[in-house]
Simulated scan of single mutants.
Amino acid sequence: MAYSSSFMLPLLLLLSLSLYATIATATGHEHAATKEKMTHLHFYFHEMYSGPNATGLVVAVPPGKNSSIDTFGALIVIDDMLREGPERSSKLIGRAQGLSAQASLDGTALLTAINFVFTEGEYNGSTVAILGRAVPSAPAIERTIVGGSGRFRMARGYTVSKVISWGGGYFLMEFDAYIIHH
């Protein structure tokens, strides 16, 4: 069967455009992958868990139990300070806002879901979301970065933290965040 040239020309043009669109899409996708960056942030997490200006509160415990971080099922809501250094007077760079739940029948082991909301410097307005298990007595606590926004859009990676001090109504942790983002 023979096809007329008036039929073949549009068909060839359509085939060429389809092939070009496929190559352009694949090239664009590869280009986006090469734009990923790794950012390492080092900061301190400051929490006041008692007093009138507490930034970490036990808001729910199972019936008949005391209000304690060690009570299985306890839910803690936080709006803690992120600072450049361990001193309470060091520069405020953001907030840690989220939830912790006492998820272990044996000792303190918290399920944490926290957003680091940066309010200063080049990451002002950006966030990093972490999720994971935190055992305050462990020498190192590793949690997963599950997302982000702003400069940390499509973030993934991990954090490593350790408790510096805990007592007198004040909780201090040192954080290293290793963030892969676009």
Rank of each mutant, 00 (worst) to 15 (best):
Y123V: 09
A26S: 14
A140H: 13
G51T: 07
F175S: 02
G85M: 06
E142Q: 10
L75P: 00
L14A: 15
I93V: 11
K162T: 13
L17E: 05
L131S: 04
A113S: 10
T25G: 07
A134N: 13
Y170L: 03
N66Y: 14
G94S: 06
P139W: 05
S137N: 10
E47N: 11
A138W: 01
S6A: 13
I180W: 06
A101H: 01
G150V: 03
V128F: 09
G147H: 07
T127S: 12
L17W: 06
M173S: 08
A109N: 08
G51D: 15
R153W: 13
P63M: 06
I145L: 02
Y49V: 05
G56V: 05
F171Q: 01
G169R: 03
S137W: 02
G167H: 04
M8K: 05
S4E: 15
Y123S: 06
T34H: 11
P86F: 06
S16F: 12
S5Y: 12
T108W: 00
K65N: 11
G132N: 01
D80K: 02
L17N: 11
G121T: 10
D79K: 08
T144W: 05
G28I: 10
I141H: 00
T34K: 09
R156P: 00
G148W: 01
R151L: 14
T119D: 09
N115T: 05
G64H: 08
A74P: 00
F7G: 11
E87V: 12
I114V: 12
S50R: 09
G169A: 09
M154L: 15
G168F: 08
K65T: 15
A21L: 12
E122H: 05
S137I: 14
R133G: 03
G107M: 07
L131I: 04
A134M: 08
G85C: 07
Y44Q: 04
T159M: 03
S50K: 08
F72K: 00
H42D: 13
Y44A: 03
A113E: 00
A113R: 02
I78K: 05
W166A: 09
F175I: 01
S4L: 13
L110I: 04
M8R: 06
F43Q: 04
P62W: 06
R83N: 02
L9R: 14
D80L: 03
T39R: 07
A134V: 05
D106L: 08
M48Q: 13
A177G: 06
R153V: 10
H42G: 09
V160S: 11
M81Y: 15
I145Y: 02
M173R: 07
A96H: 01
P62L: 06
S161V: 01
L11M: 12
L75E: 06
F7Y: 14
S104W: 01
A74W: 01
A129M: 09
A109D: 12
A103P: 02
A54M: 04
L111W: 01
S18Y: 09
T27F: 10
G147E: 03
L13K: 12
V59L: 04
D79Y: 10
E142I: 06
S149W: 03
L57F: 04
I69Y: 04
R95Y: 11
S89V: 12
H31D: 15
R95E: 01
F116V: 00
A33K: 15
S50Q: 13
L99P: 00
Y123T: 08
E174M: 04
Y123Q: 07
